[in-house]
């Protein structure tokens, strides 16, 4: 009886501890970040190294970097996942090689990705410190997450669909497009969210690739400062920048929430349409 109560108590305590840390973190950011948050903070350019002014150009840069990363990584990872799960045998040498490489890639520290991106995109391809370089570097970084989640999602679809569709004389590609990918959509969206989360939180890889410049970017070839880099800079290098750093962190979290909810509702709508459309 006593043992049971103790176990229950421990489990509750653990859960409370985990959610407590999250709530504390969130509350801290909200309490310190909310006072400075206003419409003008969101749209104005930073002044005095970010101590005053807003973060308008930085939000734009962040969204652009994120956009480049996801637009390039999503088709690549989807194609790789389809190859791994549908077109080669699970235990083939090639498949194992690709999976092993992805697992290694997923564990590589982000600073290494940053140095690689700097050497390859900025210098070798001549893209310089630019939003494009940063986005492509992040793209390499999120590929393993996107591929593995998409592959798992596809493999989790019932094999009965494949058999039934073949028995109806449907081609592999039609089965994939009309049945397997829609069935795997929730997993694909979850993977995408994990990827966006990792990309938007990235600092180290971006310092070397998209740079520090806090002006409004004119094109993808301009250098642009991401939110996470801005927060890092304000809290480490700028004395008296803490208030702006807190507000920027709050904006970062809000941005993540907005992207998550948009993606989820899009996926829901798309699923609904694929069921109902005549």
């Amino acid at each position: 009886m006593f043992k049971n109560a103790l176990t229950t108590l421990l489990i509750w305590l653990t859960a409370a501890l985990v959610s407590g840390v999250f709530v504390w973190l969130l509350a801290d950011i909200i309490i310190h970040g909310l006072p400075k948050l206003s419409w003008s903070f969101l749209v104005e350019a930073p002044e005095n190294a970010g101590r005053s002014g807003g973060i308008g150009p930085i939000i734009v840069s962040t969204v652009l970097i994120l956009g480049v990363a996801m637009v390039t990584a999503t088709p690549l990872s989807l194609a790789t996942a389809v190859l791994l799960s549908e077109f080669i045998r699970h235990d083939s040498v090639f498949g194992r090689l690709v999976r092993r490489s992805l697992d290694v890639l997923a564990g590589v520290p982000s600073i290494v990705f940053g140095l690689f991106g700097n050497a390859f995109f900025c210098i070798y391809l001549g893209l310089g410190f630019s939003i494009l370089s940063g986005g492509l570097t992040l793209s390499c970084m999120v590929l393993p997450i996107l591929i593995r989640t998409a592959e798992e999602g596809l493999q989790a679809t019932p094999n009965d669909y494949r058999l039934s569709a073949s028995a109806l004389g449907m081609s592999r590609s039609a089965t994939l497009v009309h049945l397997l990918l829609p069935a795997a959509t929730p997993a694909l969206v979850a993977g995408l969210m994990l990827g966006v989360g990792r990309a938007v939180a990235e600092t180290a890889a971006l310092i070397f690739t998209s740079g520090y410049v806090d002006r409004m970017p004119d094109s993808l070839f301009d250098s642009g400062r991401a939110l996470s880099v801005h927060i890092y800079d304000l809290s480490m290098n700028v004395a008296g920048g803490d208030a702006s750093a807190y507000s920027s962190a709050l904006v970062l979290i809000l941005l993540l929430l907005i992207i998550n909810s948009i993606a989820l509702s899009l996926a829901k709508q798309w699923l609904h349409r694929s069921v109902v459309t005549a």
Partner: peptide
């Protein structure tokens, strides 16, 4: 085991 596709009744027949 019956394997209806996760689509509408109409789409199940139309797709093939």
């Amino acid at each position: 085991k019956p394997v209806p596709f996760p689509l509408s009744i109409r789409r199940n027949i139309e797709l093939p």
